[in-house]
């Protein structure tokens, strides 16, 4: 499927009429299709600077629009609308409303780094995708994506204890995204290995649930990282001209401070 830079004609702008009378003259049959005119007026001239202020977006200004990133992209191969080069173009031009049209797929970047490998200008498109997804959430255009919910639960455990516990990540993630734990494929996997696993393993997994893996003397690191996150969050909000969070846990601040 070809990629149109400026999709000026969109399906919702095409008006087809069976019977049409213009200024008293019946033009039915001759003029049945019209295209509603459209003008882009809401440029955000700061858009590139806003994305550039978020982690990963720092090098967006280097882009030459060669398209190597999209050409190399893993997700583009299965979802043609996923187009890093096009989004970088929109951001650099300040087409905020155009960018927001793709708000529900930008988070799907799998971080395979094929784009970063291919990019001749060291734009780090993978970072730009993450910064853009982050920006959409901070600006309130999207709810937290499943990916963000996963990242936050994962990071919360690391920050709290220094290590993660696999089953806790799985369980908490499914709970937070309102998915059942007993999904057919997970049940099949569980059943397959349960038949072969030694009893010792089952006990070990239960043990890990009660006594979660921890790094010794982690408390100071935890405090240092938490302070750093709060400080960075304030920087990001300032760069996007958003209000400072009123309380510690606002809707879009990473929820990493939950009691352990």
């Amino acid at each position: 499927m070809p990629i149109h830079e400026k999709s000026l004609i969109r399906p919702e702008n095409i008006k087809t009429k069976e019977n049409l009378i213009v200024e008293g003259i019946d033009v039915s049959g001759h003029w049945s299709t019209f295209i509603e005119s459209r003008a882009v007026t809401d440029y955000n001239e700061e858009l590139q600077e806003e994305i550039g202020a978020l982690p990963g977006g720092e090098f967006i200004h280097r882009c030459w629009q060669c398209g190597s990133c999209t050409n190399a992209c893993t997700v583009h191969a299965i979802e043609p609308r996923f187009n890093p080069r096009y989004w970088i173009y929109l951001i650099r031009m300040g087409y905020e409303s155009e960018l927001v049209r793709d708000k529900d797929i930008i988070w799907q970047c799998v971080s395979c780094n094929k784009c970063t490998y291919a990019c001749p200008r060291d734009v780090v498109p993978e970072g730009v995708m993450k910064a853009t997804a982050h920006w959409l959430e901070l600006k309130g255009y999207t709810e937290k994506s499943p990916s963000t919910i996963f990242d936050e639960e994962f990071s919360r455990q690391i920050i709290a204890r220094g290590k993660i516990e696999d089953t806790e990540v799985l369980h908490k993630f499914l709970h937070k995204t309102k998915q059942p734990l007993m999904q057919d494929w997970l049940v099949t996997i569980g059943r397959n290995i349960a038949m072969r696993l030694p009893v010792k393993w089952g006990l070990k997994m239960m043990w890990a649930q009660v006594f979660k893996p921890k790094t010794k003397d982690w408390a100071k690191s935890r405090k240092a990282i938490e302070d750093y996150i709060i400080e960075q969050d304030a920087h990001h909000r300032h760069a996007l001209k958003l209000d400072a969070p009123k309380s510690k846990a606002t809707a879009h601040q990473p929820k990493l401070h939950a009691a352990e």
């Binding site: 993450k130 936050e152 690391i158 996150i229 990473p254 990493l256």
Partner: peptide, 22 residues
Amino acid sequence: KDWNCCGAMEVKNIDPKIQTYL
């Protein structure tokens, strides 16, 4: 001795510098 998580693929999406620290 007393190692911690390296940050995996998730922490960098919160903040890459924390991953570098870990």
